[in-house]
Design a protein around this nucleic acid. Structure first.
Lengths: 356, 356
DNA sequence: CTGTTAGCGCTTTCAT
DNA sequence: ATGAAAGCGCTAACAG
């Protein structure tokens, strides 16, 4: 194990001073072409890894980081992502970071536009985005690209953008897996009702489309004969859901299995309980407090988790390490698709933030 | 957010110098009773948290840490635990740590005794134990208790010991969950063959006993009518397994479902393949390379993971933070019981970037 | 454009 | 038993 090379070692090898090496390492400018090449030559030979502990304590400047995601409600998916982000910040408590958080209504494209416009007008060092609407996100990203502001996605990736990295489940595989799980516990004759959220100003979110595709593909590939009933589902106008649900159950001879492709599965579970509908097999997304409760009561059979805390944590940590330590980063980061049941749910609370 | 209190702040408040405060903080002795009480009084009032970055770079002493576990084979369970341990070490690369690793044959109690005796004769700062045999482990731990050497368990906890912490799956729940999963995908008439490893000099490992108990309890509680066939399984004498297996399948009218309570499920999968036995539903423990291969081929339906990398990583990280930064430790750490299928397996390979 | 230098807060050694 | 002081390696300000 060779002893570590320090800035001063590089300086000596290149025949310059510490200060100049630091200027090159951080692209601070004011370096002659001659010095730069000499230093870069040395850097190519040696494997310089800054001591991050020293960096952390020496750092004087501060960083302004903007976070934008759908609105956060207690115990829900996006709260977990924010928790993860804050957890990462705690790990770097000695670094001065100014965090600005802007949330938009994920069911209203106009809210998103407005917030993104505001963000575009801000000066910042980095941006973390939880996207919903593709077009709007692409617009924002273009502006960031022009200004050399690095950004990282959480929850899902958006095509035609150039993020530093993204943290996302493979939503297609997610839907595919859900199809496998639900069909493994129901009979081939059982119908499957599949719920998707309706949004204002846009057809559907990218993630839901992908999950739906994976779901359908599995059934087709495996020649499943279950009839699939697509049911719209409104978060903003819950009264219309009652109607859809009662119509659904009135039309069915046998209760269908239920798949909810967003994190609001508990709404359906509540309806079933209120109407004393039993024996329904049900798979939903995300470990929200309400979903966990429904899982523990036995209303939901499987929950699929996508590590939201880890996504937030890793996004922020990656960003900081990029900004401060210039660490290399992996662009594509697919998170686990955790299959959760009544039995293993209690072991999935690493960040202690799933409370009820 | 109040500004951080440093050693020098405490020193001033207590009317002593930095050096004396440090002596108290690290129990280094040579402090008058008067100074000690003054400093402790201040420490009770303020919330002192050492800056770990500074600690890390200032530290001159080195630590000798011993690790003992069952033997490591490539791609297998214990290798993952060791990988995790080494990852933690990488994160603290600037701290001088001498790592001594001793492995024993987990199927031979005499090997374990011999190794543990050797370990007991060593001088060390801390010990990480992957236990198999309860009595032997308790003996070793008693000796460590006498010498004030802290130890942490991975894989399972041992009663009647006083570890700093343990990292373990809840093996009982694990067995319980396996029972639920297997019965959810087979018919109530299907028999279940359950495989347990045989060991030399001991009845069975603690973990397997607990898993078996959980398994049986589930079936009983849920009035499952499946017949359970317990099959012994020898890792050291594989030729005897052939016999058991052929006898098993000859005796059955319909192929039974298979549950393997240790990580050697792939042995059974191989037998099935070699003998062209198809249509077997199978659940096994642990994401070993061989098991993953069998899962991907469709021979295994579910694998249950218990985060071995995380266990090793967290054990070592916790130990270092205890030794160096005197961090508070959570004693009981139950790891996730990951349910793995062909679909989500590829997202469970975070070998390169363990965090938390 | 470049070299020098003052911190950052903690550990450890060395006088006293 | 105690205080003073020398590092640890990096960042950033400052003086040329």
């Amino acid at each position: 194990m060779q002893k570590k090379v320090r800035i001063i070692d590089i300086a000596k090898m290149a025949g310059v001073s510490k200060g100049t090496v630091d200027r090159v390492l951080h692209n601070r400018g004011n370096v002659s072409e001659k010095a730069r090449t000499a230093i870069n030559r040395v850097l190519d030979e040696v494997n310089y890894k800054p001591n991050i502990h020293v960096s952390a304590i020496s750092l004087k400047r501060s960083y302004k980081i903007v976070v934008t995601t759908p609105e956060v409600s207690p115990g829900a998916y996006w709260e977990s992502i924010h928790n993860g982000i804050h957890h990462a910040l705690e790990e770097y408590e000695n670094i001065k970071i100014e965090l600005l958080v802007f949330t938009y209504n994920q069911y209203d494209i106009f809210s998103c536009r407005q917030i993104f416009e505001k963000i575009a007008s801000l000066k910042m060092d980095a941006l973390i985005i939880g996207p919903t609407f593709a077009e709007e996100t692409i617009n924002l990203c273009k502006k960031m690209d022009d200004r050399d502001v690095p950004y990282i996605f959480v929850d899902s990736n958006i095509e035609s953008t150039m993020p530093l990295a993204f943290l996302s489940a493979d939503h297609y595989v997610c839907g595919y897996m859900i199809a496998k799980l639900i069909t493994s516990i129901i009979r081939p004759e059982t119908n499957i009702a599949i719920f998707q959220a309706v949004r204002r100003g846009d057809i559907s979110s990218n993630t839901t489309i992908l999950r739906k595709k994976g779901f359908t593909d599995y059934l087709e590939k495996n020649k499943c004969t279950n009839l699939v009933l697509s049911i719209p589902f409104s978060v903003t106008e819950p009264e219309s859901n009652e109607m859809y649900l009662s119509r659904l159950f009135r039309s069915q001879k046998e209760v269908p299995a239920i798949v909810v492709l967003n994190s609001r599965g508990n709404f359906i579970a509540d309806y079933l309980e209120a109407n004393h509908i039993e024996g329904v097999k049900m798979i939903c997304m995300d470990l929200t407090s309400a979903n966990i409760e429904a899982l523990k009561k036995g209303q939901i059979d499987y929950l699929i988790g996508q590590e939201p805390e880890y996504q937030g944590f890793f996004a922020m940590k990656t960003m900081l390490e990029y900004l401060i330590f210039k660490k290399k980063i992996t662009k594509e980061n697919y998170v686990q698709l955790d299959i959760i049941t009544q039995e293993n749910i209690d072991f999935y609370k690493r960040f202690n933030n799933i409370m009820y």
